[in-house]
Every structure is written in structure tokens, then in C-alpha cells.
Amino acid sequence: MSNRETNGEPGPGARSDDSHGQPEDLVTSGFPILERTDFSDTTFLLEILHPAMARAAHPGQFVIVMADDQGERIPLTIADFDRDRGSVTLVIQAVGKSTREMQARCRAGGELFGITGPMGIPSKVSNARKVICVGGGLGVAPIFPQARAFKEAGAYVIGVVGFRNRNMIFWEEKFREVCDEFIICTDDGSAGIKGLVTDGIENAIAAHGDIDEVVAIGPPVMMRACAEVTRPHGIKTMVSLNPIMVDGTGMCGGCRVRVGGRIRFACVDGPDFDGHDVDFDDLMVRLQRYKPEEQEAMDRWSEHCRRLAAAPATTIDTGSN
């Protein structure tokens, strides 16, 4: 753990004499939503105004989001950040109660109750000459800034992303801009190659004998499969873990994962780890911890939505709180 980075060296020259107010762009409550884009009926993008975070964010880091004051603290990997616009971008899959509620309520012009970050140790953009950046499901968006960072560092970047079908595809243009090769994998073959991202990785490894590193972000099963594909080739494979967490600052220990036989906290020791050392079974078991409660919350939310739909006079709150 030698990530001792100091972004701005202090010094007398850095002082501006009479600026005694806070930096005006330090938003710390009521975070404005600048834009929303829907990629499919479950996946949507939110762009949040937070100039200080946009300046501080690096690929691989995550944020904790609270949609409202009774919400959960939800960890989400940063999908992109724009230092000029002063914004960070999150891509969210509406899979549970909280994310569905966000899907129903978060609109451009509204705001989030809370967003904290960037959290976690930034991904190490190694000096690999040839890398495969793999994204699947939730991981497609956050693999993008990594691919871009590798490209900026001068690497030959092969992007491999997986979608269920052609209608789910997003950011293809963005990826093509930063990837030297770009392989789309779809479950049904409606775009790119038919198969999983592991097929894409195998194709890339077959075509290039000199891959230095693979970076994979996505559901745990996918990351495990990726690590198993690269293991026989001895290619270093970094994965980004997404366990259950509460505070995201190393305080609760809910995110502990087993890596190389040791207990690590994904929030402060990660979220990136060597995929060949991660105990994915352990991770997947721990992700099931609140299944009954999640189901209960989902059922209640579905019932709530059904009632709203049955009463056409009531509109869904656009979520300014």
C-alpha cells in the first residue's frame, strides 16, 4: 500500500492573499443532477455537478450516493469525470429497491441528497504496453476511464465489452475513440461476436501474444471468469470489487474480502485487487447477505409503484429532496 500521492504541494506560492471564502465550487450538500440519459429500461446515466470531485477523481475510484435522507448509502464506481464541466458521471443499473427508486425519481434539474468521494485507491495505470480493458454489465461504464487512462499513457488498448443484445449497447463511440481495437460481445449475437466477454478476451489473446495486463470490471462471476481465462497465460488481471458497504471509509468492515488469504477492506485497501488472488466464492456469498431484506424492500416498492400507477392523479415525486 504505497499510494502516497499528494496532489497539490503546499507552499507559499500557492496562497492567494485575500481569498478568505471557501473555494466556491466545493459542493457538500444538495448535489445538482445536470443530465440523465437512459440506455435501456434498466440502465441509466446521471451526471452530477461536483467540481471538486471532478478534479480529484481518478479511474477506478467510487462514490457513495444517498438518493434521499432515508436512503441507503450506495457505492457506485465513477463512470467518468469531466474536469472542465466540473461533473462526475455515474451509470446505474436499476436492480434493487434503492436503484429503482433513483431511476423513478432522479431527473436532470433535481438533486441528490448525498454523494461522497472519490473513495478508494485509484487504479494503478501501469506502464503496460498492451492491455485488454473488459467491461460487462455494471462494469461497462467504469472501464471506460481506465481504457482512456491507458490510452493516454501510451498503451495499445483492446476494449472488450459485453451486453445482452444490441439494444443495450451504449458508449460505443466513446470506447472506439480510446481503444485501438474494440470487441463487442452479445449474448444473442445481435451485435459484435456472439458470446461472453471471456470469448472476446480469448480472441484478443489469440490475436496478440504480448498482452501485458487485463483489467476487468463487472459482476463477480464475470470477473472470476476473466481471471480464469488469463490465469493459464500468466497475464496479470486486475479486478474491481463491489462488496456490500455502509460508510465506504474503512469504518464498518462490511466490505471485507479475502485476497491472497488475507482479509482486506475493499473500500480503503481496494477496490482494485489482483484477480488471481481474489476469493470470488467468498465475495459472492457475502453479496447474498441481505437477500431477504432486499426482497422485502423490493416487494414494498413494487406495491408502492403499482398503487401510484393505479391512481393516475398522483404523479411521481421528481425527487428534489
Binding site: P10, T28, A52, A56, G114, I115, T116, P118
Partner: peptide, 18 residues
């Protein structure tokens, strides 16, 4: 100011500097 993770959003060195 809540929702502010010092160290990651800005460092102690940045607090004294910029």
C-alpha cells in the same frame, strides 16, 4: 461541511496550500 472525505476529495497538503 458533510459528505467531504478529506484525503481523497482534497488532501491535508491542499488545505494548507491552495
Amino acid at each position: 461541511r458533510c459528505n467531504t472525505l478529506v484525503g481523497r476529495l482534497f488532501t491535508i497538503e491542499q488545505m494548507l496550500g491552495e
